[in-house]
Design a protein around this nucleic acid. Structure first.
Lengths: 261, 261
DNA sequence: TTTCGGCAATTACTCGGACTTAAACTTTGC
DNA sequence: GCAAAGTTTAAGTCCGAGTAATTGCCGAAA
C-alpha cells in the first residue's frame, strides 16, 4: 500500500510566490468563449506547426507539462486528445506523447491550417495549397455550371452586386466575395468538395489577410467574377472552368505580391 | 428534438466471445491497443455519421450519457473533445452538446471517413467522393509527370511488377496497387495533395473492400497502370492526366458493380 | 404590448487525487 | 546468446467536488 510515498509534492494551489497583488496568473490565456483545453490545444498546435517540436520529439509527461502550464491534468489531456484527433501526436503508456511524422498530420483540417498560418507559413506549403486550389476550384465551377439551380444563381448575382458596391478594399466587399465563392461551391451539390474548397479558401485568404490589407490590387477582379457567373448561368462547364482558373491565378498573383514585401 | 436519455443504444461491434459469467460487462468494448475514449469516440462518431443523431440533436448530459455507457465522465469528455475537433459536435455550458450541421463536419478527416463507411455509406456521398477523386488524381498524375525523380519511377516500376506477379485478387496485389498510387502522389511533391488523395483513396477502397473481395474485374487494370507509368516516365503531363482519368473511371465502374449486388 | 436588463438554474468546465493498465526496460533463467 | 518473466514508468481511467458561463425566465421600464 503506497498511497503517495514518493510523490507528496507541492499539493495545494500554486504558491503564487512571484506574483504580486493580482490573483493567480494562468500561464495560458484564452479569449472569451474559448475553453481552456481549446486554448492549450491552440498553443501546442501552433508550436508543433511552427516546428518548435519536431516529428519524433517527445513531450514532457502529462504531470510535468500540465504543471508547467499551470492547468489541471484533465485539461491538458483533453487538449492532447484534440491534437491526437488531428493526427499531430500519438501517446502511449510508458512511451509518452510523441509528435507524429508530418505525413500523418491532417493538413486539411481547418484548425491545423489555422495553426499553420498562425506563424510564418512554410512557402512550399502555401504553394502546394494554391496548386490544389487551382485544381479544385475550376473543376468546381464546371460542376456548378451543370448543376446550378435558380436560387444558386440569385445568390451569386446578389453577392456580385454587393462586391461592386463595396469594393474588395472593404470588409463587406470581401464578405461578398466569400459569399460568391460559397455559392459556386454549394451549386456543385458535392459535400466533400464544398468542405475541401472552403478550408483551402479560408487558409489562402489568411495569407493576404495578415499582410497589409488595403492596397492596390493587380487589377480589378470584378469583371473576372462576372465571367464566371455568366458561364455558370449559361451552363457552359468548360467556360466556367476557364473563367475560374483565371480568377484563381489572379488571387495567386495577388498573394505573391503581398508576400514579397 | 430527441435526447436519447431513454435509449440505451445497442452496443455494436462484435463481442468476440459470449459474455456470461464474467463480472462487470462494459457497455463499450474496445480492441487491443484501442483506448477507451477512442472506442467511445468511434461509437459516437459512427452513430452520428449513420444518422442516429441528427444535426441539431442534443446529446444527453455528460453525467447521464457517461453513466449510460458505463464509463467515467473523463473518458466520455475526452471522446467528445475528439468529436468536437472533427467538427461533428459543439458543446457549451447550459446548452449541452449538440450535433453540428453537416456543413461543419470535417468530411475529409480520415476517421470521419472511416466512420462514414463503417455503416452503409450514403450513395450521394460516395458519388461525391469519386467525383473529387476524378478531379484530383488526374491532376496529381500530371504534376507527377513534371516533377518525378528517378527514385519515384523506380518505386512505381517495382509496384507495377508486384501487381503483375500477384493479381488484384490477392492482398499483396492490392498492396502493390496502393504503393503505386502512393508513389505517384509522392512524386507531386505537394503535401496537401498527398494527404487529400490518400484519404480519399483509402475511403474509396473501403467501398470495394467490404463487399465481396475476389471476383472478376470489369477488365484487366494492369495495362492502364502501365499507360500511367509510361506517361509519367516520359514527363508527358497531359498524357498522364488522361491515363489516370481512365484508371479512375475503371475503379468507379468496379465499385458500381460491387455496390449493385 | 414590447423590449430591455438583471436573476437564477442548469450545464459544461476545471480541478486534484487515487487507482489501473499497458508497454518499454531490466533482469533472470535457459 | 536468446527468451521469458519481472519491474518500472507513464499514460489511461475513475471519482467527486467545486467553478464558470450561458441560457431562458421574469419583471420593470418604454
Amino acid at each position: 500500500m503506497k498511497t503517495f510515498a514518493d510523490a507528496p509534492p507541492p499539493l495545494m494551489d500554486a504558491p503564487t510566490a512571484a506574483e504580486d497583488t493580482t490573483a493567480a496568473t494562468p500561464r495560458v490565456r484564452r479569449g472569451t468563449g474559448r475553453r481552456l483545453h481549446g486554448a492549450i490545444a491552440h498553443k501546442l498546435g501552433t508550436a508543433i506547426l511552427a516546428g518548435e517540436y519536431l516529428p519524433g520529439d517527445i513531450l514532457s509527461g502529462e504531470v510535468a507539462f500540465s504543471e508547467a502550464l499551470d492547468v489541471s491534468r484533465s485539461a491538458y489531456r483533453e487538449a492532447v486528445q484534440v491534437l491526437t484527433a488531428k493526427g499531430l501526436v500519438e501517446s502511449r503508456p510508458k512511451a509518452g506523447t510523441r509528435v507524429l511524422p508530418r505525413s500523418r498530420w491532417n493538413l486539411l483540417d481547418p484548425d491545423v491550417l489555422a495553426w499553420a498560418f498562425a506563424g510564418e507559413p512554410d512557402i512550399a506549403f502555401v504553394r502546394g495549397l494554391f496548386e490544389l486550389r487551382a485544381i479544385v476550384e475550376p473543376a468546381a465551377a464546371a460542376l456548378a455550371a451543370e448543376r446550378r439551380e435558380r436560387t444558386d444563381l440569385k445568390i451569386m448575382k446578389d453577392a456580385l452586386a454587393a462586391m461592386r458596391r463595396h469594393t474588395l478594399a472593404t470588409e463587406a466587399g470581401r464578405a461578398a466575395d466569400r459569399e460568391f465563392h460559397d455559392a459556386v461551391l454549394t451549386a456543385t451539390r458535392n459535400d466533400a468538395l464544398i468542405v475541401l474548397s472552403a478550408s483551402i479558401g479560408a487558409a489562402v485568404s489568411w495569407t493576404t489577410q495578415f499582410k497589409q490589407r488595403a492596397r492596390a490590387l493587380p487589377r480589378n477582379p470584378i469583371p473576372d467574377h462576372v465571367l464566371v457567373y455568366d458561364a455558370i448561368a449559361a451552363g457552359d462547364a468548360t467556360a466556367a472552368s476557364n473563367a475560374m482558373r483565371t480568377l484563381v491565378d489572379l488571387a495567386l498573383e495577388d498573394t505573391k505580391l503581398a508576400m514579397r514585401r
